[in-house]
Design a protein around this nucleic acid. Structure first.
Ligand code: ZN
Ligand code: ZN
Ligand code: ZN
Ligand code: ZN
Lengths: 165, 165
DNA sequence: ATTGATATGTTATAATATAACATTTATTGT
DNA sequence: ACAATAAATGTTATATTATAACATATCAAT
């Protein structure tokens, strides 16, 4: 299945998440270096907060986590950082949740397909050419040319099914 | 292609939209009658406003159109009507736009797949079993069981391509 | 008419996001 | 190193989207 990439799989609840976080940060760092972009302290902190788990994070929760002993940051602070991270593909917005999730393979593609567990809230990301091609082909039969897509699938991950959720 | 339903096709810009509107209202009326539900004056007006075109409509635009010479209605008025209409499948929310669009075949299924033209904003709705099955099958390979989905595809309709948009 | 359920009105507020402009920090050219 | 420029962040205000809580009105059936 060479045309079906799992950009972020569901991880066992006992996995070492520090590895996910470290990997995401180092990918972002090297990608920014390649592209001549600045992964500033703020952008890095926001990326860390988004990658705090595999669950989508709300912009205002990030905002609340950003305080430096002084007062709370203002919304544009976090939205600008999120805009940058989304533009560079380090973070995706889950439209059906108004929340943001880290991308497991930045640079792989701009738009993935997201599986969202209604039990544990974890998100997995695919980039599946079969799905994309089928949608493009069905759309084309109606004369429609695809530019982008928002594909968010709600359901239960394997672990949550076992728990009987 | 019996397993691919076009619930709302793209209509030519010169089509007689009063037919779409009339059809949607009469379907809603008969469906409510069957189900013992009340398509009240307010709900009917909101449905008419959503069906004012094939473009998604914003909740607050509906709100602004609801004035009866007296003062503007309050948000819960329109959100409650939209909740009812969505629950009964007469209206869908387009998550990527925070806007609402009429359903061409209420009762056919709960979740369709939406093609959204970035030229004219028109929306077409599919209920394509091939797409749904493929997504369910890909998800299942990861142990994920699908409950629902949000599929919104951005691109250009045939008419807008001809216009060079 | 009385009752209970459903729907709507009303006020306030929560949650999400952007506009506009000031200030700071980093980069570039000299 | 210095000034000029560009990029990023801070700050204040406001726009947009949506819900909570409770009061009133309407409807359906006894
Ligand atoms: Zn992890
Ligand atoms: Zn789960
Ligand atoms: Zn029409
Ligand atoms: Zn179009």
């Amino acid at each position: 299945m060479s045309n079906s990439y799992i950009l972020s799989p569901f991880k066992s609840s006992s996995h070492t998440h520090a590895h996910c976080l470290g990997s995401a940060l180092s990918k972002a760092e090297s990608t920014c270096a390649e592209r001549g972009l600045r992964l500033t302290r703020l952008r890095r902190r926001v990326l860390e907060l988004v990658w705090g788990s595999h669950e989508p994070v709300k912009a205002y929760d990030i905002l609340d986590s950003l305080h430096d002993n002084s007062r709370r940051a203002a919304p544009p602070t976090v939205y600008r950082a999120l805009d940058f991270l989304r533009q560079e593909g380090f973070v995706h917005k889950i439209e059906s949740l108004n929340a943001y999730v880290g991308c497991g393979e930045p640079g792989h593609s701009n738009a993935g397909q997201f599986l969202i567990c209604s039990g544990c809230s974890a998100v997995a990301e695919l980039d599946d050419v079969d799905i994309i091609n089928m949608i493009a082909s069905k759309a084309r039969q109606l004369g429609f040319v695809v530019q982008d897509h928002t594909i968010e699938v709600q359901g239960l991950c394997a672990e949550c099914q076992e728990k009987g959720l």
